[in-house]
């Protein structure tokens, strides 16, 4: 694991953040610092924890399959930046 390894541009694309060149440069430096700090974890011996983390819970908080009221289309769309004919409108999705 190399703290210098982060490719900010690639990761920003994955996260759908369009960064300016300046931002990429700033984040590259700051995140490299932070990842350098985080590298301290590599020296922690975690061999004893493997077994514990996968224990099964003691209860299942499941919901009974009963109807609850929905909201109206008007309420659903009240915050929509763009809407038309009861639909949320986005630029045409390309396949």
């Amino acid at each position: 694991m190399s703290s210098q390894g982060i490719d900010v541009q690639y990761v920003a694309d994955l996260a759908r953040l369009r960064l300016s060149a300046d931002e990429v440069a700033t984040f590259q430096k700051q995140l490299s610092d932070i990842l350098g700090y985080v590298d301290q974890l590599q020296k922690v011996d975690v061999s004893s924890v493997e077994a514990i983390t996968a224990s099964a819970p003691t209860s299942n908080n499941l919901r009974t399959d009963e109807l609850k009221p929905s909201i109206s289309a008007e309420e659903a769309l009240a915050n929509a930046p763009v809407q038309s004919d009861n639909l949320f409108i986005v630029p045409r999705m390309v396949e």
């Binding site: 982060i6 900010v8 990761v11 920003a12 994955l14 996260a15 953040l17 960064l19 931002e23 700033t26 984040f27 700051q30 995140l31 932070i34 990842l35």
Partner: peptide, 12 residues
């Protein structure tokens, strides 16, 4: 900027 920084770190 702080939110972007953390989103990028978390995505990474």
């Amino acid at each position: 900027p702080e939110v972007k920084r953390r989103i990028i770190l978390g995505t990474y």
